[in-house]
């Protein structure tokens, strides 16, 4: 009896939660194939039976001029900025994290833990506080409205995340591994690249995932620091909006924006569950 109740509750909860997660996608998927007429006739889900599917919403995204807003260029820009900033943040963050985890720094009263907190404090501040300084700095260097400028700003945003994740990861790798490597003849840098780094792959993957998600989804800075020459995907998607809300193309663009993250999530999930995470040490 208890068991049945428990199972019932469990599956109800799972059902509610999954519909919560899945239904918006379903809605977006069906909507993207509708026309203005299809949308006004209430919530319908089955194509051909309930509404006449159309590819108009999708075509708009790749069409230039006239009735179309091309999101191909923003898509590419977004990828370049996100991947570039993520890679650089990962490289710098991993090195910084190794230093913070293994060596003791002291600058007056500032210790390792303070440096660590300083990194994360960048993310605690509301973004608006950073927006004006970023704007002024980029303006000074003539980097407003450019891919390079955005990459620099995104590194400032992603580096703390990468560092934070990796410090934690390195702290969980036994120091004896480093010590053993130095006994075996590596200097600290050799020990890092030959022994510690290969063992940290799961941590790097997780940190990388965070960087990609945060970088890809950022709207605020992409919006403030670009005007006409450069446009990132989230800004382009919002720009689709006009006097008549084009639900169909908005839905289609939302789907293509989440697609890369979904694909990465699947790949990473495979990687993490295939035992790469297990027993990296000892």
């Amino acid at each position: 009896m208890m068991r049945t109740t428990y199972l019932l509750l469990k599956y109800t909860a799972i059902l509610i939660w999954s519909s919560f997660v899945v239904l918006p996608f379903l809605w977006a998927l069906t909507t993207s194939f509708k026309t203005a007429h299809g949308i006004t006739s209430g919530a319908t889900y089955i194509p051909w039976l309930q509404y006449e599917p159309s590819l108009e919403g999708w075509k708009v995204l790749v069409r230039t001029g006239g009735a179309g807003i091309n999101i191909v260029q923003p898509y590419i820009s977004s990828m370049v900025v996100t991947v570039g900033a993520s890679l650089i943040s990962l490289a710098l963050g991993t090195l910084a994290a190794y230093g913070l985890s293994r060596f003791t720094y002291r600058l007056g009263f500032i210790k390792n833990s303070d440096i660590r907190f300083f990194f994360i404090s960048q993310r605690i501040m509301p973004p608006i506080v950073l927006a004006i300084p970023f704007f002024l700095m980029l303006q000074y260097f003539g980097l407003l409205d450019s891919i390079i400028g955005l990459i620099i700003v995104y590194i400032a945003l992603l580096l703390p995340i990468a560092t934070w994740v990796m410090v934690d990861f390195f702290n969980n790798i036994l120091r004896e591994i480093d010590e053993m490597a130095t006994i075996d003849g590596c200097n600290p840098i050799g020990a890092f690249f030959r022994v510690i780094l290969p063992n940290s792959l799961p941590g790097i993957v997780v940190a990388g995932l965070f960087c990609l998600i945060f970088g890809w989804n950022d709207f605020f800075f992409a919006f403030i620091l670009t005007f006409t020459k450069t446009q990132l995907l989230p800004v382009a998607v919002v720009a689709l909006n006009s006097s008549v809300t084009p639900w169909w193309s908005l839905s289609a663009s939302a789907l293509v924006s989440v697609a890369p993250l979904v694909i990465i999530a699947f790949v990473v999930e495979r990687f993490l569950s295939s035992g790469n995470m297990a027993g990296a040490i000892r």
Partner: peptide, 27 residues
Amino acid sequence: NIAQVFQFPVVYTLMSVEDNLAFPLIC
């Protein structure tokens, strides 16, 4: 150039046994 064996086993888990043994020589 000291060889030291720690109190509990430390092995480089991503390497084969052979590479583990060869590691001090590779370095």
